[in-house]
């Protein structure tokens, strides 16, 4: 009986979604807002080859600031919830192969993450993706060497410094540029070069560091309260 109701609710949800599918006819061309972002003179104003990055960091940079704040709140709540336990954990020793492979792979993974967020304005990628890759290196480290002390104070310091630099660069736009998060306070450079697009690579690098540090803190918080049962 209960399952019957659940099936009815899911079917009703599917019926509700059907008109959305039915009335969708595909886009023949960009809408007005996207055309504004893709126009030649506006692309040259931001000078970022990756238009998604231009939207995320410059046009809608305030959204990104809110997003980073939400991540910070999550990390803070989890750190508040999951305080360290005093009980001793008996851990099985990891195999030699796993530990050696982890030692080899962790620097490479961190390097890939840094590459992704430094090239965020040129190729697919950016601060959030690069930060997630760096955090995956931290997961590997915590799995391979569970007894290694995790310095969450250092990660907290990296995180808050990066956040402050992000907001500081955004405010510099108000002081010497045309507005909050104006990326043209630094020279825009040549289109498609690594050092181009003004402050976008700098902001995205700090976002990457911040996200990586925050996710690492969340993971270590979840790991530190794990019991043996």
């Amino acid at each position: 009986m209960k399952n019957f109701f659940k099936i009815i609710i899911i079917a009703a949800f599917g019926v509700m979604l059907y008109p959305l599918f039915d009335s969708f006819s595909g886009n023949g061309q960009l809408n007005d807002l996207a055309s504004f972002y893709a126009q030649k003179e506006n692309v040259e104003k931001v000078n970022s080859a990756n238009l998604v990055t231009a939207v995320v960091v410059t046009y809608r940079g305030l959204d990104t600031l809110g997003e980073v704040t939400i991540l910070f709140l999550t990390a803070a709540i989890i750190a508040f919830f999951l305080t360290k336990q005093s009980e001793v954990r008996t851990l099985r020793r990891n195999s030699e192969i796993f530990q050696t492979a982890a030692r080899l792979l962790i620097p490479v993974i961190i390097m890939v993450g840094v590459y992704i967020f430094i090239n965020g304005h040129l190729s697919p990628g950016g601060g959030f993706q690069g930060g997630a890759v760096i955090a995956s290196a931290v997961i590997l480290m915590l799995l391979a060497f569970p007894n290694m002390p995790f310095n969450s104070k250092l990660f907290g310091l990296i995180e808050s410094t990066s956040g402050l630099v992000f907001v500081g660069i955004a405010f510099l736009g108000v002081l010497i540029g045309t507005g909050f998060l104006d990326n043209a306070i630094l020279p825009l450079g040549t289109f498609g070069e690594l050092l181009s697009a003004g402050t976008i690579p700098i902001i995205y690098s700090f976002v990457g560091l911040k996200v990586g540090a925050e996710l690492s803190n969340i993971i270590s918080g979840l790991q530190s309260v794990q019991a043996d049962n």
Partner: peptide, 26 residues
């Protein structure tokens, strides 16, 4: 919506998909 040698800066308007929802999904 990434401009390079394949999608030039001049004809980006006719060749790319909408970047805004992608930024929102991020």
């Amino acid at each position: 919506p990434i401009l390079d040698s394949a999608v030039g800066i001049d004809d980006a308007l006719n060749k790319i998909v909408d970047p805004v929802p992608q930024a929102l999904v991020l």
